[in-house]
């Protein structure tokens, strides 16, 4: 089970909230301070992509973010419910397709540039991006 789970309506203004929560939980989990900026950016990119996919497909379901603390690692899963269509099924020349695809690719490029351990999956029920970072062994906790 996720340590912290967040669901938010697919609106741009909530992406910042997701970034802040993810960074706070990552810090608690022991992710290195120097990497927190990357966590913030990567989760923001993943959520931005999910918001775009929901909005483009007219999906009212929320975007789901799971923050998972495990032994020696911390993972973030960002899930969307936008069904993927096989490339051949797309109406050719549909307005906006190219621009959307371009923005989608830029977000994924940033994620793969930032995070070494990343898994992108997609199917007819939606997609998911899972990103994992190592955590430092817990140091002495101050009272």
């Amino acid at each position: 089970m996720a340590t912290v789970e967040l669901r938010f309506s697919a609106l741009p203004e909530h992406v910042r909230t997701a970034r802040l929560v993810a960074a706070a939980v990552a810090r608690r989990a022991g992710v290195d301070e120097a990497v927190l900026d990357e966590v913030r950016l990567a989760v923001g990119e993943a959520c931005t992509r999910a918001v775009g996919l929901h909005q483009n497909a007219g999906i009212t379901a929320p975007v789901k973010v799971q923050l998972i603390e495990e032994e020696k690692q911390f993972s973030i899963e960002v899930g969307d419910e936008a069904p993927r269509i096989a490339p051949g099924d797309r109406a050719p020349g549909a307005a906006g397709d190219d621009l959307e695809a371009e923005e989608d690719e830029m977000g994924l490029a940033v994620i793969s540039g930032l995070v070494d351990d990343v898994e992108v999956t997609a199917g007819e029920n939606g997609g998911q991006i899972r990103m994992t970072w190592p955590t430092a062994p817990p140091s002495a906790v101050l009272p």
Partner: peptide, 9 residues
């Protein structure tokens, strides 16, 4: 303080 791919775009 923060810039993402949307900003780059």
């Amino acid at each position: 303080d923060f810039l993402d791919s949307t900003g780059l775009g």
